[in-house]
Design a binder for these strands. Structure first.
Lengths: 182, 182
DNA sequence: CAAATTAAGTCAACATTGCTGACCTATTTC
DNA sequence: GAAATAGGTCAGCAATGTTGACTTAATTTG
């Protein structure tokens, strides 16, 4: 790339080294900083989920229902096994939630075309409306935080959060729709 | 503050407006972006807590115990009421956890000096060791994410996470030690 | 084609962690 | 001395997670 050959050292006048922006400035990884991050994650997640929980409470649904609605809405036609991998809960725990959602007409099922053993999950209109309602509450909170922080901060936020996640989750987020291996 | 009086408009030569860095560049607040943030928070929090949960499992303790240990360690001498406000759980739910920790010699109590009704909570040596052990697991994960992301991203992460939290939690984080009103 | 595998569902029992209501005990404050 | 405050405790219930064992239907494989 560069034609510059190594130059021999030549004693002479003092020349101030070029003031480059620190190339990869050191990140503060002190315990204090790491514990502050723990706090941030705890409070951030708590307050982020709280706004949806308040809506759910009035409807007699729980956070688990919300999670299922969210991921079905985001991955229409997701298989039961896909949802299990995404949520990382047992088949029985999911069944309780999923049955409630189907009973209430929020989630619909369709047999797979090639493989009729599969139950492909989708939101019904009613389910979509509820999910949208829950989303609205959280969207407002995220939007306010994003707007106040500015685009650079948002990019940083995404980078760090992404770094906290497992490989599988990262792959999932890269290709929404293939909700396997999370 | 300023002596400038409103100046009348005076027609004249065209002068290019000063090229400022875009004042507050637009942040992407589309639904897609907001939903991606939901995903990030879900997976990030899940995987962040998972590493500590694995340690806790071996010890027969739960996430609730970890939270108590964390906030007592971070705020030595915290009052029971302070912990209640921070964790936002009921007195009875906290009692169950706290009694277990005291019984196992992980947390110590001391009556307040001025007001002897208060139970000031601290970690015992044993409790401190356990908390440190749990911290280590999460620290590694955060440190890796921070290191890979770089200081600018970390600053952005903190800004956004802070923006997601309630006023009370922000006040708490500003003045660690006064764990009230969270 | 019969056998094995896979996707999903179900029943039962249990643990953790949250909740409310009701009530008790010290201690401090008015 | 009465009222308020900080904390503790008992009892019961709800949401959400777990494991184990078993069933059914559909697909794949030898």
């Amino acid at each position: 790339m560069s034609d510059a050959k190594p130059r021999a050292w030549k004693a002479g006048r003092f020349v101030a080294p070029p003031k480059l922006p620190p190339p990869t400035p050191i990140v503060d990884l002190s315990d204090a900083e790491m514990r502050a991050a723990q706090d941030l994650l705890f409070f951030g997640y708590r307050d982020f989920t709280d706004v949806a929980d308040k809506v759910l409470e009035e409807l007699g649904l729980g956070r688990a229902h919300h999670r299922a609605l969210h991921f079905i809405g985001r991955n229409p036609g997701i298989k039961v096994s896909g949802l299990l991998k995404t949520l990382r809960i047992s088949k029985q725990a999911l069944a309780r939630v999923l049955n409630a959602l189907v009973d209430q007409g929020l989630v619909g099922q369709a047999a797979g075309f090639d493989d009729r053993r599969l139950r492909l999950l989708t939101l019904t209109d009613k389910g979509h409306a509820l999910e949208q309602h829950l989303f609205d509450a959280q969207r407002d909170r995220i939007a306010a935080a994003y707007r106040a922080a500015g685009p650079q901060a948002v990019a940083g936020f995404r980078t760090v959060m992404r770094g906290l996640t497992d490989k599988g989750a990262r792959a999932y987020m890269d290709g929404i729709g293939s909700a396997e291996d999370t």
